[in-house]
């Protein structure tokens, strides 16, 4: 990034038609894969390593964030050899707390920014928000796009804003939240994905978790296909982060199947794929424990932080 911001070109939005029913049929096909035995264990480990353990509440305190970080470092010490999660995702005000709590680990700190979750503020404030998070030590920034501008057809505005935030991120990696639950159709999801990728997103992300529906397999598939188109065109790999609503390990494994069969094994890596989730980790841990110990588990045996 030689400091030069990319310029918006409307032509990138050509050929963005998506047939919703076909997307859904394809998404269902991924859920028909039967993941058993060794592949299940491998998959569950991958899921754990890709989780952005998240707390994004008005009532977040340093105490809460600290506890979450301890959970991130000690997922379930009864079972040796488990990976740690990829990152902790918090508000900018909590970044320094998380940064300190995670010192010495490989776990990244991700911060939401840009007037999260609505994005209804000025560019100036959004950039300040971003710089604050980065200065506090955030390794990753999860921004929201201006959905209002997007719906108003101001694609260049949306594009330029992402490019500006990307610049403000410096070395921090940028995840661009589309808030697909507010976009209306899969065609719009594809359009927003295309804009975000062209503007410099390192990751594209479905949702803030504050709007329903959040991540779904069809939405994620369309985003993965947009990432694939970019890869075909440029050879560059953009990451994907579905967030919100993925709380069961079986569903998480189906997401991995979808990633594998859409983008290939190269994307099965926390550098390129994340789950934004708060309760998924424990469900995966219960499955891992079941596979390891051979009997069904109770939530009482898995710490909640």
């Amino acid at each position: 990034m030689a400091g030069k911001k990319p310029a918006f070109n409307i032509q990138i939005l050509n050929h963005s038609t998506v047939e919703q029913t076909g997307v859904e049929e394809r998404a269902i096909r991924f859920t028909k894969r039967s993941i058993k035995g060794a592949s299940k264990m491998q998959g569950l480990h991958m899921v754990l390593s890709m989780i952005d353990l998240t707390t994004l509440e008005g009532k977040d305190t340093p105490g809460k964030v600290n506890q979450l970080c301890i959970k991130a470092r000690h997922l379930h010490d009864h079972i040796p050899g488990l990976p740690s999660v990829a990152a902790i995702c918090v508000y900018p005000s909590m970044v320094s707390v998380a940064k300190k709590a995670l010192q010495g680990s490989t776990i990244k700190v991700a911060s939401v920014a840009t007037a999260f979750p609505s994005g209804q503020s000025s560019l100036r404030i959004k950039l300040a928000d971003t710089r604050f998070a980065v200065e506090e030590g955030a390794d990753e920034v999860d921004m929201v796009i201006s959905r209002g501008k997007f719906h108003a057809g101001e694609y260049a505005y949306v594009f330029d804003e992402i490019a500006a935030v990307k610049e403000a991120c410096g070395k921090a990696r940028l995840k661009v939240i589309l808030e697909t639950g507010e976009l209306g159709t899969l065609d719009q999801v594809k359009k927003a994905s295309t804009i975000a990728i062209a503007a410099g997103a390192d990751f594209i992300k479905t949702s803030t978790g504050k709007i329903q529906p959040a991540a779904t397999m069809p939405v994620t598939l369309v985003m993965l296909e947009t990432i694939r188109d970019h890869f075909y065109k440029t050879g560059k790999k953009v990451g994907m982060k579905p967030a919100g609503g993925i709380s069961k390990s079986k569903l998480a494994l189906h997401y991995l199947v979808m990633v594998k069969e859409t983008l290939g094994d190269a994307w099965l890596d926390k550098q390129l794929f994340r789950f934004g989730a708060s309760s998924l980790a424990n469900d995966v841990l219960m499955q891992v424990a079941k596979e390891t110990l051979g009997h069904y588990q109770s939530p009482n045996y898995f710490s909640i932080d």
């Binding site: 993941i35 592949s39 491998q42 290939g264 094994d265 190269a266 890596d269």
Partner: peptide, 13 residues
């Protein structure tokens, strides 16, 4: 498509 590490599905007969 580029390949890094493989995640193959175990037999599920």
């Amino acid at each position: 498509m580029a390949k890094k590490k493989k995640w193959d599905y175990s037999p599920a007969p």
